[in-house]
Design a protein around this nucleic acid. Structure first.
Lengths: 251, 251
DNA sequence: CGGAACCTTGAGAGTAATCAACCCCCGTGG
DNA sequence: CCACGGGGGTTGATTACTCTCAAGGTTCCG
């Protein structure tokens, strides 16, 4: 039973609310969360499209994906969920969830029944506030993604996806010298950017040839020239952080 | 002063909550809304990207677009706002809105300061509930749009866009025999589907040649074969309604 | 050692963008 | 009344980007 909500995660999550308030670190929240921890293998489906969903997820470790599938099987990843993130897509008023949620890596997740999750927000206004920030951040990410999907070239989309992940991981303290771990395949990146895995590969190689970034061990990304990447993505890194990272909202 | 929130609109909006509850028809709501009515010419920018936004909009008549622009000027329409819809993108915690809101046609809009909007929700739980439904609907529309933008062909995207609008307009009673008014240019449709205006035109003509639909007067669409359109869009019309129309959520 | 999953690269095909010309409709002003 | 201009829409020709198919490479693991 190693996967409880103790120090390491609590401090990481706590960073989401910098100025002294750390909702998920509060005794109450930690106790509730620990009661619902669950470990999921990579590939586990947490919510299937069209099935009902009456729980909220708070991720302690591992990456999740929220995705949606076309009738012919083509899949679009709508959002990546990183450690410390909150997934609140449940809707008590309907019995069919419009999206799918799956674990991309081994993941430790608190699975909160909707009632307890609401209670937690009622009991601790800071948690309600955090929830609002996550909603705002996800809307920001959606708008950005739609813009790139609709009007961006392959280079723009890849550059943007990497910048978004880099900015979010930076806020979690997971980036050192422009280097971060990317525990997903090129296929996943393609499902997120609307490109084929083959073209993701080509685009990454082209960026590497331009000395913008390097891929290492197929699992790490090192960004050498953030300005060039921002130029390709068509966004300023600071602005992106404000619009996409819950930690940066309202501070 | 013709643009007050009286019978015609109130009943249309009221349809959003079928079972006897009609929040925007209640005396209180109507009085507050009428105090803030504003008429906007086509092309009016209500919110600029990057500027602060401290108001909510409730549309009485006319179409709006929520859009986002790339540095090179390419624009993506993220969502269309129809009569009776609610736009609540304001965030009291930051001073830069991530998207732009503009009137596509002449429009009558209630512009509610955030404080009054919140008060209204506090005073009338039915309005708070309505707000939640609109949030859920917009998320559903975003997920669908992202899927089509990422993985759909031009035909799929156009078919989906028309189906979404048809379904939403049907819920408002604005569709008769598959025919509805589309007060936007092909350029707008292109900005929404991520296609060039030229290719929107070609695709519409192809659909017309296949007898799926007809365009009339450049402003009306008549859908002859909804099943074929649904097939192309990759979605069932009933399912789409449940996921995209606030009226249909939680009923 | 064999297999599986993923990455890489090349060649060819297909889709949508761009450029360009023309049309139509409509409002304006001579 | 008509000439004019502007905004959309339509169509064709050409270009460019991305997909698909295919083959081979690497790493990891049973």
């Amino acid at each position: 039973m190693t996967h409880t909500f103790e120090a390491s995660t609590a401090s990481k999550v706590g960073r989401a609310v910098p100025h002294g308030k750390r909702p998920f670190e509060a005794d109450l929240a930690r106790r509730v969360l620990n009661r619902h921890m669950r470990r999921c293998a990579a590939g586990t489906m947490l919510v299937l499209e069209g099935e009902e969903c009456r729980v909220a997820y708070i991720v302690r470790s591992g990456w999740l994906a929220i995705s949606k599938t076309l009738e012919d099987g083509e899949r679009q990843i709508v959002d990546f969920i990183l450690p410390g993130d909150l997934v609140d897509i449940a809707d008590e008023h309907r019995n069919a969830c419009p999206v799918q949620v799956e674990a991309l890596t081994l993941a430790d997740i608190a699975v909160l029944p909707l009632r307890e999750w609401k209670q937690l927000q009622t009991d601790d206004p800071a948690i309600a506030d955090l929830n609002r920030k996550y909603s705002v951040a996800i809307l920001g990410r959606f708008a950005h993604s739609m813009l790139r999907l609709g009007k961006g070239s392959a280079e723009t989309r890849i550059a943007f996806a990497l910048m978004e992940l880099c900015v979010r991981l930076t806020a979690m303290g997971e980036v050192r010298n422009g280097r971060f771990h990317l525990p997903i395949t090129q296929q996943h990146l393609g499902d997120f950017t609307g490109l084929s895995a083959v073209h993701v590969c080509r685009t990454l190689r082209r960026l590497a040839r331009q000395a913008v970034l390097t891929c290492e061990d197929h699992t790490d990304i090192i960004i050498h020239d953030m300005d060039a990447l921002a130029q390709l993505a068509g966004i300023d890194a600071d602005q992106l952080e404000r619009e996409v990272v819950p930690d940066a909202i309202g501070t």
